[in-house]
Simulated assay, not measured.
Amino acid sequence: MSRARNGWVLPVSLFVALLLGLVPLPEMLQPLRPYWLALVLAYWVLEEPEKIGLGAAFVLGLIADLTFGGLIGEQAMRLTILAFILDRFRARMRFFPLSQQALAIGVLLLNDRVVSAAIHLVMGEPQHSWGYWWAPLLGMLLWAPLHFVLDALRLRRRG
Results as ranks from 00 to 15, higher is better:
residue 1 M to V: 15
residue 23 V to H: 08
residue 137 L to V: 10
residue 9 V to H: 06
residue 27 E to L: 12
residue 159 G to N: 13
residue 5 R to L: 12
residue 106 G to W: 01
residue 44 W to N: 02
residue 85 I to K: 01
residue 34 P to I: 03
residue 42 A to H: 01
residue 33 R to N: 07
residue 80 T to P: 03
residue 105 I to V: 11
residue 72 I to P: 00
residue 120 H to I: 12
residue 18 L to T: 15
residue 33 R to D: 05
residue 79 L to M: 09
residue 72 I to L: 13
residue 44 W to R: 01
residue 133 W to I: 12
residue 43 Y to E: 02
residue 112 D to N: 04
residue 155 L to F: 12
residue 84 F to N: 06
residue 128 H to L: 13
residue 84 F to G: 03
residue 149 V to H: 08
residue 116 S to Y: 06
residue 73 G to T: 10
residue 74 E to T: 13
residue 7 G to D: 13
residue 100 Q to C: 01
residue 151 D to A: 12
residue 132 Y to V: 10
residue 71 L to I: 15
residue 25 L to T: 05
residue 52 I to N: 04
residue 51 K to G: 08
residue 127 Q to M: 13
residue 3 R to G: 11
residue 75 Q to R: 11
residue 137 L to A: 09
residue 63 I to R: 02
residue 159 G to F: 14
residue 16 V to A: 08
residue 120 H to F: 11
residue 23 V to F: 07
residue 89 F to N: 10
residue 14 L to I: 09
residue 92 R to F: 15
residue 121 L to I: 11
residue 70 G to Y: 15
residue 156 R to Q: 14
residue 2 S to N: 12
residue 102 A to P: 03
residue 3 R to Q: 13
residue 95 F to P: 05
residue 49 P to Y: 09
residue 133 W to M: 04
residue 72 I to N: 06
residue 48 E to N: 07
residue 13 S to L: 01
residue 73 G to E: 14
residue 138 L to V: 15
residue 21 G to F: 10
residue 78 R to I: 13
residue 76 A to M: 06
residue 12 V to K: 00
residue 58 F to E: 02
residue 133 W to N: 07
residue 97 P to D: 13
residue 19 L to M: 08
residue 142 L to H: 11
residue 79 L to R: 03
residue 82 L to K: 01
residue 155 L to E: 14
residue 144 A to N: 11
residue 26 P to I: 12
residue 125 E to W: 14
residue 2 S to M: 13
residue 28 M to L: 12
residue 42 A to Y: 01
residue 1 M to W: 13
residue 33 R to G: 04
residue 118 A to Q: 05
residue 26 P to L: 12
residue 65 D to C: 04
residue 64 A to G: 11
residue 76 A to E: 05
residue 136 P to F: 12
residue 148 F to I: 03
residue 67 T to K: 05
residue 35 Y to M: 07
residue 11 P to F: 14
residue 86 L to Y: 02
residue 143 W to S: 00
residue 71 L to E: 10
residue 26 P to V: 09
residue 46 L to H: 02
residue 26 P to S: 13
residue 107 V to W: 07
residue 8 W to L: 03
residue 66 L to F: 11
